[in-house]
Amino acid sequence: MKKRYASLFAYSLLATLTLYNCKDHETPPPIPDFNNELSGITVETVTIAPPAPVTTQPATFTAPTNTTISSYSGGAPTAAMQSTATTVSNTLSTSEVSAVNAITPAQLDAIANGGTLPSELQTALDKIKGNAGLTSFLASFSLPTVNGTVVNGRTGLPESIEKVMGTQADDACVKAAQDALANVINKLKADAKTQQDKVDADYQKQVADAATAETSCKAGIPANYTTLRTNTKTQFSGILANLDANQAALGSFYGLLKALVTVQYGSTLAAINSLEKADLAACTQKKEATIANANAAKAANTGKVTEALNKGLKTASDKIAELVKACHNQGGGK
């Protein structure tokens, strides 16, 4: 609640109490039991709403589905292999094929360790992606999402009322009204604080849980992708070794098929790298989204508590203004 509201409330009530400050009673009227009259005024219990949930979709990875080359067991190339080699020849220039085949195992290991694709491999990959007849040789994947947004991995309760200033009046009835008002204000503020403490505690737990969830989320990711890289390296190293061992039998198809497998290998490693970064980033983004939702819920719940407190204060103000009329000297002389 705003201090402006609190000040207006305090000063308005002060004027009311002063107005009814009795003077020179011959026989003072009985003082009402203000505390009893105000005892039923409370801060309504609000329903604390939880934060909105954060929705996520995990990353997916699918190894190349075309087994034309990976199923080759040696000897003369199959018709499917010959057709594939011809498609590669129509997609990449002779110099591009040579450049890809000049890539060393050390360069491929560098990719596996998180490095980027060599420019010659990236050029060949872009062209192969553009040929529908070769895309089945490439791994496919989808990046994770947080609240529908794709993650790519690139990287307390306000003071409710000012202290009511006491009048200088010595009228016992008005003084009793002032004391009763102070008591109910303190009670309402205490009630509201109890509810606000629950709002704050829920928020702190939500933030702590989000941080714990992030740590847990990230814990197994590196090992999972290390395993995927190891399996990829074993698979493609074996395919390349098989092609090398059958180079004579493959003849002119050898260089084209080897270039395609090298692009497969390098692009698969690059996809794995991208997915690992994205998965780690998604863990952090989920935490941040969770905390943002917790902040929004805290603000909304604090608003509810504040509104309930203001309502209680307004009720107390109206009630005391009505009751204090009994302090007025009705018929007593000065």
Rank of each mutant, 00 (worst) to 15 (best):
A241K: 09
K2R: 12
A180E: 01
K205R: 10
P30H: 04
T149E: 12
P32Q: 09
I31L: 08
L188F: 06
L92K: 03
P28A: 05
G114F: 01
C217P: 08
K205F: 05
L269C: 03
D171Y: 00
N246K: 03
G332D: 10
L257M: 11
V164Q: 14
G166Q: 11
V261E: 10
H328Y: 13
I128G: 13
D200F: 00
T104Y: 07
E37N: 14
E26F: 11
K298L: 11
Y5F: 13
A106L: 12
A201T: 11
F9K: 14
A15D: 10
A59K: 06
L17P: 01
H328D: 10
G115L: 01
Q195M: 03
L108G: 04
L257V: 06
T16N: 12
L13A: 05
A10W: 06
D33V: 06
Q285N: 12
L92A: 08
F34Q: 10
A112L: 04
C22L: 07
L13H: 08
A300W: 02
M81N: 02
Y5T: 12
V150E: 15
K189W: 02
D109L: 11
L14W: 14
K3Y: 15
G331T: 10
T212D: 15
N242Q: 12
L13K: 06
A245K: 13
K163G: 06
P50G: 01
E214K: 15
S317V: 00
I291Y: 02
T226C: 01
L121Q: 09
V88A: 11
T194W: 03
T78N: 08
G148M: 12
L181Q: 15
L134V: 05
T27Y: 04
K127G: 07
N231T: 13
C283K: 09
L250Q: 02
Q330T: 07
D279A: 15
S119P: 07
Q195F: 09
E288V: 06
P53V: 14
N310E: 14
N301C: 07
K193H: 07
G75P: 08
T45I: 05
D279V: 04
A112K: 08
T87S: 12
T167L: 11
V184R: 12
E26M: 09
P105L: 03
K198G: 01
A211N: 10
